[in-house]
Amino acid sequence: MSTKNWPLWEIFVRSKNGLEHRHCGSLHASDAEMALENARDVYTRRNEGVSIWVVESKHITASNPENNGELFEPAQDKVYRHPTFYDLPDEVKHM
C-alpha cells in the first residue's frame, strides 16, 4: 500500500480572457486532474477565474538568487533599450 503524501502543485489562474495566467498559490492533489478540480474549488470560488493551469511544483526550475548579480544586474545599464534614452524635438508630441 502506498503511504506517500499527495504532492504539491502550483496554481495559475487567468482571471479573464485577454489577461495572462497568474500564479495564485499552491495546493496538494494526488494527480493533475484532481489538482485542477481542487484549484477550481480553492482558488476560483469567488469567481476569480476563467482558466486554470496546474504544474507539479517539483517540475519548476527556479533561478538561484545567489546568481542574481550575473543574471539580472547586467540589464540595469542598458538604458538604450528604453524610449526615454532618445532625444526628440518638442514639436513631436507622440512617438
Binding site: 484532481m34 481542487n38 470560488r45
Partner: peptide
C-alpha cells in the same frame, strides 16, 4: 480527509 476535499465538499 484533506483540506482540499473539505473545501470541495462544502462547495
Amino acid at each position: 480527509p484533506t483540506l482540499e476535499t473539505d473545501i470541495a465538499c462544502t462547495n
